[in-house]
């Protein structure tokens, strides 16, 4: 990978990575730091990274940095431990994206990551498995559970509204 390819990768992937991390950790500064760190690591290994695999490299690096950060801060919240009936409906959702955004917050970090990689970036099960260090079957199961939770959340909100 050369200098030009590196700079192109910044244009192509910085925004997507930033959105992916931001949706996961909901902290703009930290998301920015993680993106910067990931590109810094890419630059240090620029000679060894294939330009065709740069996206995967960046997302893998960003994902692992983010997981380390989350674990450090112990901000783990498992959706499975949350009772749907306990959701606060005092909020007034203006559209579906807000409901989904709220539902996304309640997913476990792994479920959230895999579904974001799937929907935002259109990664295949195999690619997600590589990025997240999971097996393909595990990715399928996490996506299945995440969809179920999102559907239940949306369903419960819609029924109340």
């Amino acid at each position: 990978m050369n200098l030009d390819e590196y700079n192109i990768s910044v244009d192509q992937h910085a925004d997507g990575m930033f959105r992916f991390i931001l949706k996961n950790i909901r902290d703009e500064d930290k998301a920015r730091d993680i993106v910067q760190d990931s590109f810094e690591k890419l630059w240090r290994n620029v000679e060894n990274v294939n330009s065709l695999k740069v996206k995967s490299y960046l997302y893998t690096t960003a994902y692992h940095t983010m997981i380390d950060l989350i674990r450090r801060e112990k901000r783990k919240e498992d959706f499975e431990n949350v009772d749907v009936r306990d959701y606060s409906h005092s909020e007034h959702y203006s559209d579906l994206s807000e409901i989904l955004d709220d539902a996304l917050k309640r997913l476990s970090e792994v479920q959230r990551s895999v579904i974001l990689l799937r929907d935002y970036e259109g990664y295949s099960y195999t690619e997600i498995a590589k990025i997240t260090d999971l097996t393909e079957s595990q990715v399928k199961v996490y996506i299945y559970r995440a969809r179920m939770h999102l559907k239940n959340y949306i369903g419960s909100i819609e029924s109340i509204v």
Binding site: V10, D15, Q36, L96, I115, Y120, L150, K151
Partner: peptide, 26 residues
């Protein structure tokens, strides 16, 4: 309802400091 669970990226969220990430020399 399942169809609604597909997440759509908010393209208004962008990384503003892209120029800082770019390199001018090796």
């Amino acid at each position: 309802i399942y169809q609604k669970t597909i997440l759509h990226a908010d393209n208004s969220l962008v990384f503003t400091d892209k120029e800082k990430l770019k390199r001018s020399s090796r």
